[in-house]
Computed example of a mutant assay.
Amino acid sequence: MHGPAMSGWLLMALCAVTGGYCLLRARGTTGEERRTARAEALMGFGMAAMAVPAAFVAPPAWGWVVYTVLFGAATLRALWFSRRGGHHLHHLVGSSAMVYMSVVMARSGAAGHGGHASHAMAAAGGVPLLTGVFLAYYAAYVLRSGARLVPVTAATAGGGAVAGGIPAGGWGARPELAPACRLTMGIAMFAMLLTL
């Protein structure tokens, strides 16, 4: 999950900003939308933490166990809410992918010391078929999300904004930003899975 230092920092910043926006969006919503925004914030911040270049902060071996437990709980939560369908099925796949990457990194253990975690990830391997399934899912998700984003942006560009382009409800009320954040996290997840 950690490539060269610059790409790692960029991925970390992108995921952290996305997670921050999802928290902002959670403040301005209620019910199902709030749960979705919180789950996306957790995913964004978790991905940001996993993307920090290992040359800067080498994660301790037990850190991957913490990620596994945290995202395992998120997977169970998403499984519970997936009975309703909708975006919870995507959260189920996303948290499962995070658990998978954490387990692979935990298995690499000692290989991650003293170098980039991507080298440890490559040494640990992972299950090629499972990695391929996750990569195929995220490739399809990114393409579909990107195609859906264009009409949303075009439809909302003309109305609802006040001076400066900020809608009356604040940044959390911009309908085109939620799909853009999902697209961003899908691209980041795809990039992280590529290092397996």
Rank of each mutant, 00 (worst) to 15 (best):
L11T: 10
A106K: 05
L196H: 11
A54Q: 14
P179K: 02
A124N: 01
G159T: 10
G85W: 09
G63P: 00
H2T: 11
W62A: 12
V57Y: 13
V150G: 03
C22W: 12
V17L: 15
F81R: 10
A140K: 04
A188D: 08
V103Q: 06
A97V: 10
G159D: 10
R148L: 05
A139M: 11
L89F: 13
L70N: 03
A163I: 03
R77P: 01
G86S: 14
A123P: 03
A147T: 03
G20E: 09
R25V: 08
E176Q: 13
G8R: 02
T156F: 00
A124S: 13
A124V: 04
V103A: 14
S95G: 13
A188M: 11
P60S: 08
A136M: 14
L196W: 04
A54D: 09
S95V: 12
A78L: 10
G126D: 04
F134Q: 06
T18D: 15
L193E: 03
V127G: 10
P179T: 05
F134G: 09
G164N: 09
G28Q: 10
R148G: 11
G94C: 14
M192D: 01
H88I: 10
F134L: 15
G164R: 04
I187G: 06
R25M: 09
E33Q: 15
G146Y: 06
G20V: 04
E32Q: 12
F190G: 08
T36G: 01
A136V: 15
S108H: 04
G3E: 15
T18W: 09
G20I: 05
A124T: 02
A155T: 01
L92S: 06
M6A: 15
R25E: 07
G146L: 07
H90A: 15
G186N: 02
R25C: 08
W62R: 08
A155K: 03
L183Q: 06
V69D: 05
M47W: 11
L194N: 03
M43A: 15
S7G: 05
S108W: 01
